Simulated assay, not measured.
Amino acid sequence: MNINTLLALTISKGASDLHLLADRPPALRIHGEIEAIDIPAFSHDEITKLLYSIMTHLQIRKFEQEKELDFGLQYDLANRFRINLHQQKGFMEATLRLISTKIPSFKELNLPEVIKDLARLKDGLLLIVGPAGSGKTTTIAAMVELINQERKAVVITLERPIEYVHTGQKSIIKQREIGIDASSFSIALKSTFRQDSNVIVIGELDDIETVKNAIAAAEGGNLVVASFHSLNTLQGIDRLIGFFPPENRKQMLSQLANCTKGIVSQVLLPRKDKLGRVLACEVIIVTDAVKRIIRGDELVQLPTIIQTGSSYKMQSLFESINKCVEEGIVDAEIAKSYLEEFTKYGHK
Rank of each mutant, 00 (worst) to 15 (best):
E219C: 11
E204D: 10
V224Y: 05
K170R: 15
N232I: 03
L240I: 14
S186P: 09
I208L: 12
S230L: 12
L240N: 04
G221P: 04
R249N: 12
R239P: 09
E177A: 02
S197L: 06
V199T: 08
L231M: 15
V211F: 02
R176P: 01
I187F: 03
R194F: 03
I202T: 05
H229W: 09
K170P: 04
L253K: 12
V225A: 06
I202H: 01
G179N: 05
P245D: 06
V224I: 08
I241E: 02
L189R: 11
D206T: 09
L189K: 11
R239D: 03
L205H: 02
I241M: 07
P245L: 02
I200T: 11
T210M: 00
L205D: 00
T210D: 00
Q251C: 06
L234D: 13
A214S: 06
G203S: 09
A182I: 06
M252V: 15
F185Y: 15
F243R: 01
I178D: 01
D181F: 01
E247V: 10
L189G: 04
E177K: 04
N198V: 09
R249C: 09
D238G: 12
K212Y: 02
I180P: 06
V211M: 07
Q235C: 08
F244N: 07
A226W: 02
E247R: 11
E204S: 03
F228Y: 14
D206I: 09
D238L: 08
R239V: 04
N198A: 09
T192D: 09
I172M: 15
V224Q: 05
K212P: 00
I173R: 01
